[in-house]
Simulated assay, not measured.
Amino acid sequence: MADRPRIAITPGEPAGIGPELVNALGDAFPDARLVAIGNPDQLQASDHLEVLPVHPAAPVTPGQLDPRNAGYVLETLRLAVEGCQQGHFQAMVTGPVHKGVINEAGHPFSGHTEYLAELTDAPMPVMMLAAGSLRVALATTHLPLRAVADAITPARLRTILRILDHDLRRFYAIERPHILVAGLNPHAGESGHMGREEIDTINPVLEALRAAGLHLTGPLPADTLFTPARLEGTDAVLAMYHDQGLPVLKHVGFGHAVNITLGLPIIRTSVDHGTALDLAGQGVADSGSLHAAIREAIDMARAGR
């Protein structure tokens, strides 16, 4: 098991491209044992893929959402988390889900990150996406823009930066991670003329954590933070909100980027794309991001054991 970690894969929304991406994996990962948790009518067990069967409540038609199967999607996630907690799996990789249809079915669900944190009693999960050497973590995730400033508190920033520093050391063998921190406002507030969050909240936290030994640079204007010269020698970027950091990351790496949840007691990676209902069932979906997510999970499992 130490040489071949066992990785749970949840295909996600059954009417989306997730199941066919899992079936397309083939023998790409001889150094791991892959276990897909989901509908056996959609998943093809093989020498390289085991299937832990979970049956949807309603028949599945590619491209057509059915709220009756929302509970099935959540059950696959629950089983993967339970398996990781009990040591049956060393990591879990999640396919794309459709938040809207899960909510339509009456299940409160704002995203994988928040749901997995609830299942594992993790107080502060951290969403980080990676594409090659670029890693972007988020101080806030799925919030309306008008709620972001109030959510960025000193306690939240301290916790997130400590988790980011800790997990970069643990899972990426970085001795002293260098983290760039974006400001919230244009020009990082421009000395208070465009907002005081940098002065009142962000900078005091950074100064305190630098004194505790963390290698932090910022707060920096987000519009110049992602230039090659600034990123040189950087291990991760902390963006203040979803659409501040992720458009850059996805421009660089869409199709082979990985979504990683830090701050959990388990390892979880995911694809960087959605359910692509318009492509489902046609056999044309690109499995590059799923491959990258599985490779990341395998490497993290080995580094973190």
Rank of each mutant, 00 (worst) to 15 (best):
L119P: 06
T153M: 14
H193Y: 10
G63E: 11
A24K: 07
P59R: 08
S133V: 05
A301Q: 07
A222S: 12
H142G: 10
S191H: 13
A137Q: 00
A36Y: 00
A212Y: 08
N39W: 10
G189K: 01
F171H: 13
G63M: 14
N39T: 13
L138V: 01
V101P: 03
L43W: 00
G253R: 00
G195W: 05
L262P: 04
F89T: 01
A280R: 03
A28W: 04
A229N: 12
V148M: 11
A222Y: 06
D165W: 06
V248W: 01
E198T: 01
C84Y: 01
D121A: 15
G218N: 07
L209T: 02
A280V: 15
R78A: 13
T120N: 10
L161C: 06
P56L: 05
I37C: 08
P221L: 09
P67H: 05
A297K: 00
G16K: 00
D200I: 13
R162D: 00
P5T: 04
I17E: 01
G12V: 02
G233L: 11
I266A: 12
P247E: 03
D27Y: 10
A182P: 05
L279H: 07
D235E: 14
Q244K: 00
T61F: 10
R302D: 12
A45M: 12
N103Q: 15
L21I: 07
A149L: 11
A173S: 14
L129F: 10
V73R: 03
L249R: 01
A137W: 04
E232D: 15
V81L: 10
E207Y: 08
V101S: 03
T94Q: 05
G304L: 10
A105Y: 07
S46R: 10
V54S: 02
S289F: 04
L74E: 11
H291K: 10
P96D: 08
G255V: 02
L52N: 10
R302F: 15
A105I: 11
G71R: 02
F171S: 14
E104T: 13
V81A: 08
G189A: 01
P204V: 00
P177N: 05
R162S: 02
L220Q: 10
H256P: 07
R4V: 13
V51R: 02
L180P: 00
R169W: 12
V81P: 04
R176C: 15
P221R: 02
V97T: 08
R295F: 14
H88A: 15
E75K: 05
I199Q: 09
A297R: 03
P40M: 12
V136S: 02
A292L: 11
